[in-house]
Structures are given as structure tokens and as C-alpha cells.
């Protein structure tokens, strides 16, 4: 099995074992993965919430660049970098656009 390099056509969702939740006691979002607790910032939480397995990464970039009236090129770089780091930790389910059309 090789490394998966993400591209905008892919649709992603958090893997079953990567659990994003709001921690009331600490008053912040946390992402639970095997033997680690990650602390996503606000932008990262927003990206992860859009990773529903239906939207492509390109769709997520469009949504965010409209919302923040920002350069899609810059947003795409940020989104891909955050999601790639999660993919590298096997925390994402990844499908290409064609596979997931069903």
C-alpha cells in the first residue's frame, strides 16, 4: 500500500476511528485518533465538518472561498495541506469522484 496523495477531485470523510467532537469541559474541539488527541483550530474544524464523503475537496474549497471571499488558490493549498496530514495518519476515508457517484 502506497501513500495517497490528495487532489481536489477526491471526496473525503473522517475515518470511523477519527472522532471529532466538542469537549464541553475544555471548551474546545478535539479530534480523537489512535493514542493521540489532536486540537484542531477553528478553520480546521470547519474543514473537517465539510468532509462528509459527498463533497469533493474542490467543493469544500469553493464553499470556503465564497464564505470568506478569499483566493481559491490559497484556500486550496491550506485545505489540501490539512487533509493530507490527516490522510498520512490514516485518518481519512478517501474516494475519487467517479467511485463515489453511486
Amino acid at each position: 500500500m502506497g501513500r495517497v496523495v490528495l487532489s481536489p477531485v477526491q471526496r473525503v470523510a473522517l475515518a470511523r476511528h477519527a472522532r471529532l467532537r466538542f469537549d464541553k469541559l475544555r471548551d474546545r474541539w478535539i479530534l480523537l485518533v489512535p493514542e493521540k488527541v489532536m486540537v484542531p483550530d477553528a478553520i480546521c474544524v470547519e474543514i473537517l465538518q465539510l468532509c462528509d464523503g459527498a463533497r469533493s475537496i474542490g467543493d469544500i474549497v469553493n464553499t470556503l472561498s465564497k464564505k470568506y471571499v478569499a483566493d481559491p488558490g490559497i484556500i486550496e493549498g491550506d485545505v489540501l495541506s490539512i487533509l493530507q496530514s490527516l490522510a498520512d495518519k490514516s485518518c481519512l476515508q478517501i474516494a475519487t469522484a467517479a467511485e463515489g457517484a453511486a
Binding site: 475544555r26 493521540k36 489532536m38 486540537v39 490539512i82 496530514s85
Partner: peptide, 25 residues
Amino acid sequence: MSADDFRIIAPEGAAPTAYGLPLAV
């Protein structure tokens, strides 16, 4: 995003000597 091997998740500005809520058991 910071990946943490169970480093303390403390409020911002908390002293490094502080102990907070336990993360893992």
C-alpha cells in the same frame, strides 16, 4: 492543527507547571 501525544491541553496562557484535566488513562 497540532498533533499531541497527550500533551496538556490547558487554557491559553496557563502556567506550564499547571495540571489540568487528565487526557488519558
